[in-house]
Lab assay of single mutants.
Amino acid sequence: MQRVNMIMAESPGLITICLLGYLLSAECTVFLDHENANKILNRPKRYNSGKLEEFVQGNLERECMEEKCSFEEAREVFENTERTTEFWKQYVDGDQCESNPCLNGGSCKDDINSYECWCPFGFEGKNCELDVTCNIKNGRCEQFCKNSADNKVVCSCTEGYRLAENQKSCEPAVPFPCGRVSVSQTSKLTRAETVFPDVDYVNSTEAETILDNITQSTQSFNDFTRVVGGEDAKPGQFPWQVVLNGKVDAFCGGSIVNEKWIVTAAHCVETGVKITVVAGEHNIEETEHTEQKRNVIRIIPHHNYNAAINKYNHDIALLELDEPLVLNSYVTPICIADKEYTNIFLKFGSGYVSGWGRVFHKGRSALVLQYLRVPLVDRATCLRSTKFTIYNNMFCAGFHEGGRDSCQGDSGGPHVTEVEGTSFLTGIISWGEECAMKGKYGIYTKVSRYVNWIKEKTKLT
């Protein structure tokens, strides 16, 4: 034993070699072989497995989906700052455009905790909710729209109204504003409101030439003092309507412009014939205590009207009353817009006519005020429907199939267009061939041609 100890002390290297040989010859039971080890760690190889990531292109799944990435790591994937920024906006807080917040056709661009709407022409605001041009839906104005110097929408209202708090709607500024039905039992019968379409306001006024200088022999019209197929109006439903009495009662109609003036057809009036105007009328054979009678003290036909040349060209006249009318729910003026808007309103496509005229061709006159909704007829169809001249200051309205029309005794009465609950004068009943005849239409004086003249002559002093 002493000898062994001496050998170990003198030859430590020998001992180490012996131990190493023993270990190498022993069977290893701690580690699995290569094949079995792979069965336990069965993990798919990654895209760049075996390579240094710093030297390969980034992978979106590896960089940002398996674990949260930084902007720089995302930049490695896209290799483009702009594309990385677009991805980053949604990656950080989701897609803010998912709810489609942009209105009126706006395009949404996502941002971090926010979004941006790219608005089409005519709109602005956070969600493109603000109209900035009158060309689109009248700028959301209830009545009139004008573009300011910086191309912003400025709404306005006709006389007797003021802008509401929203700067879009119009509200009454006087007790009985024009064009409004205020009798409670008839307010439910107000005709369907007309909503502004998209309009090209630059070209809204037709490029028409008034044929002022045409000389033409007097034409022989049949029954051209021209509501057939209409309905009984309720008291106060058309408070701007008046009836004219002269040699015979209810020979023509008219509309209240203001307390002192009536507008009617020029062919209705004769110099030297006494005319009485009755406002607030409903049943011409009954006294309903809503009527107001006034005498006409002055007749002003349009300066281009000449019955000797043509009885229905420039067929418009103004009547001055001896005493002002007292405005109330049964006696209310009709609204008159400017030339541009009167023309736009007419193009809405349908209007209402009213009167006490004959209820059928050569038949009896109506006792109760009649009204009828009539569609506008395109000019080409209008011209083809008659052998008589249709001037540019006239328009056609009615039904091709016949059966409904204005008729004798309705002449001078109103053709009105309702705009968001307020009625505007767009025409004056003038003439036609018979009444409600198939293929024939009622012919009306186009008020847009005469609004400046009306307003100039009827100013209240």
Rank of each mutant, 00 (worst) to 15 (best):
M6V: 10
A9T: 13
S11C: 12
P12E: 05
I17Y: 11
L19A: 03
S25Y: 12
T29L: 12
V30D: 15
F31T: 15
D33W: 04
N38I: 07
R43S: 15
P44D: 11
P44I: 06
R46E: 15
N48R: 05
F55Y: 08
G58H: 13
N59E: 09
E61Y: 07
K68L: 06
F71L: 15
E73C: 07
E76D: 15
E76Y: 15
E79P: 15
E82S: 15
T84G: 14
E86D: 08
F87L: 06
W88D: 15
W88S: 15
K89N: 05
Q90T: 07
D93R: 13
D95P: 15
Q96M: 15
G106K: 04
D110S: 13
Y115H: 15
E116W: 12
P120N: 15
P120T: 06
F121L: 11
E124L: 12
G125S: 12
C128L: 02
C128V: 02
D131K: 03
C134F: 02
N135W: 08
N138V: 06
N138W: 12
Q143D: 00
C145W: 03
K152W: 06
V153T: 14
C155S: 00
C155L: 00
T158A: 08
Y161K: 00
R162D: 06
L163V: 06
N166A: 03
A173R: 05
S182V: 10
T186W: 07
S187M: 09
T190L: 05
T190E: 07
T194E: 10
D198W: 12
D200C: 15
S204A: 04
A207C: 09
E208W: 06
T209S: 12
T209G: 10
I210T: 11
N213D: 06
N213K: 05
I214L: 04
T215G: 07
F221W: 08
R226F: 09
V227A: 12
E231M: 09
Q237F: 10
Q241L: 13
V242W: 01
N245Q: 11
F251A: 11
C252S: 01
C252E: 00
C252R: 01
G253D: 05
I256N: 01
V257E: 00
N258A: 04
E259N: 08
W261P: 00
V263Y: 00
T264S: 05
E270R: 09
T271F: 05
V273M: 12
I275K: 01
E281N: 04
H282Q: 11
N283H: 10
H289L: 04
K293Y: 12
R294I: 02
V296W: 00
I299V: 09
P301E: 07
N304Y: 10
N306M: 07
A307D: 08
A307N: 08
A307M: 10
H314T: 02
D315C: 01
L319N: 00
L319M: 13
E320V: 00
L321W: 00
L321E: 00
P324R: 05
P324A: 06
P324W: 02
L325Q: 00
L325V: 02
N328G: 14
Y330W: 13
C335F: 00
T342C: 03
G349P: 06
Y352P: 02
Y352H: 13
G355M: 04
V359H: 12
H361A: 03
H361P: 10
R364C: 08
V368W: 07
L369Y: 08
V374K: 03
P375A: 15
V377Q: 14
L383R: 14
S385C: 13
Y391D: 15
F395D: 00
C396F: 02
C396P: 02
G398C: 02
S406Y: 11
S406G: 11
Q408I: 12
D410T: 12
G412Y: 14
H415I: 06
H415V: 04
T422G: 01
L425F: 02
G427N: 01
I428A: 01
W431H: 05
E434H: 15
M437T: 14
Y441K: 03
Y444Q: 01
T445Q: 04
K446P: 05
V447F: 01
V447T: 09
W453M: 02
I454E: 00
K459H: 15
